[in-house]
Design a binder for these strands. Structure first.
Lengths: 165, 165
DNA sequence: CGCAACATTGACGTTCACGTGAAGGTAAAC
DNA sequence: GTTTACCTTCACGTGAACGTCAATGTTGCG
């Protein structure tokens, strides 16, 4: 056995552990970084990627957006703030003592989350519509079956057979 | 101007009209046929694809499964019956006078629709979970903002600053 | 210090879901 | 019957989202 990254103060994970934890592959995680979706919280002396808990959450969210909501990475990039902005904001938030500026940064984050919610709800509505349609198809089949069981004379649509040919 | 396919008894459409109607491209429709997701109800003398209303519905359903639910064509193929089976069943249903056989065919169709509904509901649940998570993130931000507005002393987590270094 | 198990950066390969011609037939209008 | 817009079947190209391998460096236990 080799490395268990063991006890660091801030609980930083290496890429493989993150992969296990999130259900992503190690390659996918690097690819998302390439696409500007996230950057590891830190790098080790030898340039190993090190992820913190906020990175974990972000990756789990990305995975959900991909698998559950079916968004493309481009769309996901639109929904999340890009990593450049994310870092700038974190930095600025920590640095800023001015409550007014902090408030403004929080407000920005909130409006982003609101956009995410709106987007997800739209998808949920479409899905609900599909389910409703499917239920209707089911009901239709049920009526047809009942028609066979009971007397064959359900809804007199077109009694005349089309059999001219 | 050339062709308006005009009045056929059974209202058959050519591929481009189907494309316009469903929002798919002409190429995509042919690709779905290649993948065994559907076959046109008929072909013209010169091998033009001709689609009926049931084909239209099927294509719209496929599009929804792709765009709204985010399924792959392979998954869609699992959910729909494959075209071979579809044709066999249609044929058999029309031919069969035996109510018992018709009932059995209807029952098969119904169980397929049930599977579709179950699958869609699963996705809907996952999406709902995501939305709930997003709402929670939003609430969290709101609490932070309130904390700034009001007196800065919200939830005494770790009052001790970590600043040893 | 040495080794095993991790990691790094390229770079090329692959699958899916089509896009985009090319080369040639077809359907109706004129 | 010719034109024009549509269609057909190959067949190769493309972008997204990774898989996979090679060559090399890094960690940390023993």
């Amino acid at each position: 056995m080799a490395d268990t990254p063991a006890s660091s103060g801030a609980q930083l994970l290496r890429i493989q552990e993150v992969a296990a934890e999130t259900g992503l592959t190690n390659r996918a995680i690097r690819y998302y970084e390439e696409m500007g979706l996230l950057e590891p919280a830190a790098r080790s002396e030898g340039a190993y990627r090190l992820y913190d808990r906020s990175d974990l959450e972000r990756l789990r969210f990305i995975r959900s957006l991909r698998d559950d909501a079916g968004f493309s990475l481009a769309q996901i990039g639109q929904l999340l703030e890009d990593e450049a902005a994310r870092e700038r904001n974190r930095e600025q938030f920590r640095a800023s003592q001015d409550p007014e500026e902090r408030r403004s940064l929080l407000a920005d984050a909130r409006s982003r989350v609101d956009r995410q919610i709106a987007t997800l709800e739209m998808k949920a509505r479409r899905l609900a519509d599909m389910i409703a349609d499917a239920r209707e198809r089911r009901a239709h089949l049920d009526r047809h079956m009942a028609e066979l069981e009971g007397g064959p004379d359900p809804h007199p649509e077109r009694t005349r057979a089309e059999g001219s040919r």
